[in-house]
């Protein structure tokens, strides 16, 4: 099956500093967990996938279409839902306004936008708060609004950058169930996170990045299996992750 997104030979960075080096990656339906220490290049990879920053070198294909022109970029963006780690919002917006504005940004056709907005709000279980202003919501609810904005209009690729930061345990459980629902809807989700528990709970596939390179790829079970006996960590998955990083010299 054709991958939803394909990256080939991606080099990304700012001026002379490379943040991502020669990265190849195929993204298929399901949830791909992106693990890595701070500065590994996870956010830059998501921004590149979201077409926010064009790569210095390499090719991106979204749904089989190369993203190599302004027109193709704009077309690709209709198929991508992106939630940055820190997303701004107008505090006076209602939940509905916020998601509807996101639908407009995504290019959801006007005749479908209302239904798509309501569907996305329903998906994150905020229907009864759809007329509430964002400034009156808790951090967890704001996060759910962000997820609704990322999935409105049913994009084929959803990119979530550290979406569980700041959520309490109950909210994180809710978030995981949302991601599982997305998986059931046959959406490709890329989930950047520091938390291996999130990966264990929802991901089908895991990529570990270190210093701008893809250093390991496999499913969560395989990551557990690579754990060295003396690796640090509170769970087998965490030990596997630390073992991969240790093998790369990315941890002391």
């Amino acid at each position: 099956m054709e991958p939803v997104a394909k990256l080939r030979g991606i080099r990304q960075g700012y001026r002379r500093r490379d943040v991502i080096v020669d990265l190849d990656l195929d993204i298929r339906h399901g949830v791909l967990g992106l693990l890595g220490p701070n500065g590994a290049g996870k956010t830059t990879l998501l921004r590149t996938l979201a077409t926010v920053v064009p790569p210095k070198r390499g090719a991106i294909t979204i749904s089989g279409v190369p993203v190599d022109s302004r027109r193709a970029t704009m077309e690709a963006r209709r198929r991508i839902g992106y939630l940055p780690q820190h997303f701004g919002y107008y505090p006076g917006f209602t939940v509905y306004d916020f998601v509807r504005y996101s639908a407009w940004l995504r290019g959801v056709p006007a005749r479908e936008a209302d239904a798509a907005t309501r569907e996305a709000i329903g998906f994150v279980d905020l229907t009864d708060r759809s007329r509430a202003k964002l400034k009156s919501l808790s951090g967890g609810m704001i996060r759910r609004c962000g997820i609704a904005s990322a999935i409105v209009g049913r994009p084929q690729l959803v990119l979530l950058d550290e979406p569980t930061v700041g959520l309490d345990p109950a909210q994180r459980l809710e978030f995981r169930s949302l991601v599982r629902k997305l998986k059931d809807d046959r959406v490709a989700v890329v989930l950047s996170t520091h938390l291996v528990e999130d990966v264990a709970a929802v991901c089908d596939d895991v990529v570990v990045m270190a210093e701008g390179r893809l250093v390991w790829r496999g499913d969560p079970e395989a990551l557990r299996e690579v754990a060295a006996p003396d690796a640090e960590g509170d769970s087998p998955l965490e030990r596997g992750y630390m073992s991969v990083l240790a093998a790369q010299g990315a941890v002391a």
């Binding site: 921004r47 979201a50 077409t51 027109r71 992106y82 940055p84 940004l105």
Partner: peptide, 16 residues
């Protein structure tokens, strides 16, 4: 400049 600038980064051609 917009309050939603971070989300507008990935907007379609409609925003432009």
């Amino acid at each position: 400049h917009s309050s939603m600038a971070s989300l507008e980064q990935a907007a379609s051609g409609r925003l432009a």
